[in-house]
């Protein structure tokens, strides 16, 4: 016979308490994350750590100093690909790099870098356009474990096939294999690609503007945020961009509903590629710092 019905209200209370504990005890604020994905991740944490309930998870979070790292790893979704959505990288190559080339120094911010797949893809684009020597990329994430792996640039060899295909579809000029060495079941990216990248811990919810960028790339992070948090984060990107700077979002993310949309013009709306207007709009929105 059917098991007793899951108690949705009880679970919601437990989830709220967990989120509060995470915020008050550790300063990580998930209160404005989209709930459907968050609850899924939290349930997976309960399961993975044999906690039995979200409350038991909260207890460990409060009392075990080392548990936070595991919780952040579980809530972060460092799933990515090199040259994911190849047409986006072609568009960056064709429309954005020629504009970046007009600056003596190029600053790029890639937010939510996961294991670094996307930031190394950018480095390759810049290298092939002869722009990398005067570029600097800040790759940020709030998951220290992901940042560590991003620095290492080591990936399972089974991913290389898809990534090579993506690279070629994105207009790559050589073979992706010329940028990595393969050993056993792993590939290791050429360490030289790292020379102009700074990896840093930055939380989009609580941290502020830290650079003046010509390009901000933040893909598949906003989908995890509620609408108000998306709006705030988009204002943060606006404030981090020079006038005429570019913003690139994930294919299922959009600027359209955010107040800061008035400050941007679409370069390619389908590819979620936008450019900050060179003239201020009458009402620049100031929600983020």
């Amino acid at each position: 016979m059917p098991a007793p019905q899951p108690d949705a209200e009880l679970e919601q209370i437990e989830l709220d308490l967990f989120v509060q504990a995470l915020k008050r005890r550790h300063g990580h604020d998930f209160s404005q994350y989209a709930q459907a994905s968050l609850i899924r991740r939290v349930r997976q944490l309960v399961h993975a750590h044999h906690c039995g309930s979200i409350s038991a998870l909260t207890t460990r979070l409060l009392h075990e100093p080392d548990f936070l790292t595991l919780v952040i790893q579980g809530l972060s979704v460092p799933v990515s690909e090199m040259f994911r959505d190849p047409p986006v990288f072609s568009a960056l190559r064709e429309h954005v790099l020629p504009i970046l080339a007009s600056y003596p120094q190029i600053t790029i911010w890639q937010a939510g870098c996961a294991h670094g797949q996307e930031v190394y893809s950018l480095a390759i684009l810049l290298e092939e356009a002869g722009l990398y020597e005067r570029s600097h990329i800040f790759a940020t994430d709030f998951n220290p474990d992901a940042l560590q792996r991003a620095q290492e640039g080591i990936y399972p060899a089974r991913d290389a096939q898809l990534w090579s295909r993506n690279y070629l579809l994105a207009g790559g000029r050589q073979s992706l294999a010329s940028y990595y060495s393969a050993r056993y079941d792993f590939i290791k990216l050429d360490q030289r690609l790292r020379r102009h990248i700074t990896f840093a811990d930055h939380n989009l919810v609580t941290d502020k503007v830290f650079c003046e960028a010509h390009l901000v790339l933040c893909r598949n992070v906003l989908i995890y945020f509620s609408n108000p948090l998306q709006n705030r984060t988009l204002a943060l990107f606006r404030n981090s961009l020079v006038r005429g700077g570019h913003l690139c979002l994930g294919l299922r993310e959009s600027l359209d509903f955010a107040p800061t949309a008035v400050d941007f013009t679409a370069v390619d709306a389908n590819l979620r590629l936008y450019r900050r207007n060179s003239q201020p709009s009458s009402e620049e929105h100031d929600e983020a710092a």
């Binding site: 989209a34 709930q35 459907a36 994905s37 899924r40 991740r41 979704v77 799933v79 598949n220 989908i223 995890y224 994930g250 294919l251 299922r252």
Partner: peptide
């Protein structure tokens, strides 16, 4: 459901997408 994303529902009956594994 669109390709490449998980499709979920929020309590307010709006859709949410994710790129979880």
């Amino acid at each position: 459901a669109p390709g490449g994303y998980h499709l979920l529902l929020e309590h307010d009956r709006h859709f949410a997408l994710s790129v979880d594994e």
